[in-house]
């Protein structure tokens, strides 16, 4: 399971809606909302899946930027094979 944390920056007054929208996505958990920033974690099977999941966030109305902060991918099964 790949776990990433992401800071989503939004238009100030849209922050609530965006947080709600994000919360509805599968594997996404909203942890904290402060000002125009939303902190979420994303869980997905692989790195690629994580990417697929998060690349569309920018489409959500109100989202200004999506920043990956941390990603733990040691459990990504696909990566393991590739490396060795």
């Amino acid at each position: 399971m790949v776990i990433s944390s992401i800071v989503v920056e939004t238009v100030q007054d849209k922050v609530k809606q965006v947080a709600e929208k994000l919360g509805e996505c599968e594997g996404v958990e909203v942890h904290h909302v402060e000002g125009y920033k939303i902190i979420i974690t994303v869980e997905a099977e692989t790195l690629d899946a994580s990417y697929d999941l998060t690349k569309d966030f920018i489409q959500i109305t109100g989202v200004l930027a999506v920043n990956l902060i941390y990603c733990n991918f040691e459990d990504d099964p696909t990566l393991k094979n590739k490396v060795v």
Binding site: M1, H31, H32, I39, I40, T41, Y70
Partner: peptide
């Protein structure tokens, strides 16, 4: 283990975003 990883991920994000709060609704 997963929840610990998640907690760590959130703490990094909080720090990076410059959030002051510890009262996050962290699960």
């Amino acid at each position: 283990r997963r929840s610990l990883l998640k907690a760590a991920a959130v703490s990094f994000a909080l720090a990076a975003a410059g959030c002051s709060s510890s009262k996050s609704s962290s699960t």
